[in-house]
Amino acid sequence: MLIADALLQGILMGLLFALVSLGLTVIFGVMDIVNFAHGEFLMLGMYSVYWANFFFHIDPLIALPVSAVVGALLGLASYYWFIKYLLRGPAIAQLFGTFGLMLFLQYFAMFLFSADYRMIDKGLLVGKSLSVGPFIFDWTKLAAGILSLVAFAVVYYFLHKTKTGKALQATSLNKEAASYMGIRTDRMNAIAWAIGGGTVGMAGGLLVNFYYAYPMVGILFVMIAFACVALGGFGSIKGVFFAGLLVGILEMIFPVFGHLIGSDFLGPHFKFTVVYLAYFIIVVVRPQGLFGWKN
């Protein structure tokens, strides 16, 4: 029973994790850059919904597009004002560059919003739950899971069915060939960053319904996203979806196991340790990801 419940909760979280990781894998696929600031896009997405709710009393659910737009603009701004210049340098500079961006955004948030933990306490779904048989779901988490799935599907459709999306995929497969076909790499990169920022911003908007917003919240989720992306195979969209689900389930079910066998060492404190370990083991043992897909 406990396990079934954890499984269901895990799936909901997993859908959200998949959405969080989606942008990271898209950007990696198109540009071979790992964006450390990805978690900070999420954090600012969280804050945008929080403040929309706080100042204008907009329901967090309705304010969701705000977070997506904020995320996408942030992605675009980062690309045009910063990342573009990093591309000229070696890979090590790119890593440090996005790292700098991460720190910058963290402390920018700290400066603007202080280090306080903030959570939304009123809203259409906040605090309400739905019971189905023996299972009780928080509406906020249910909404997060379902809307994440929808958003993921939309992006998936965009990438596979529209002209721009296909161009993006082509760039991801072979940059040089794509540029010969008349695809403008620079524009593709910008689109990747917009999608990356938009999806993760929206994920933040969903997350803030049931999780604290604070300036350093990003690091935790970026690590989860790294694990998902590694698990799914760097650059793979299909892969990251299932990897997200898997990590979500793992994260929920792990403490349950610990509880069942009565071990403190498998307690909830360690649920993210498992994620880090999972990343480590996966990239060492199977660097192509668990599923080995590359679209």
């Binding site: 991460m102 720190l103 963290q106 402390y107």
Partner: peptide
């Protein structure tokens, strides 16, 4: 009210160095 500015300057430096002189 100025918490974080120090690290922003710090992070800004990292960004500038990695973009212009790795």
């Amino acid at each position: 009210g100025l918490t974080g500015i120090d690290f922003m300057i710090y992070a800004g430096l990292i960004m500038i160095v990695s973009a212009y002189q790795p």
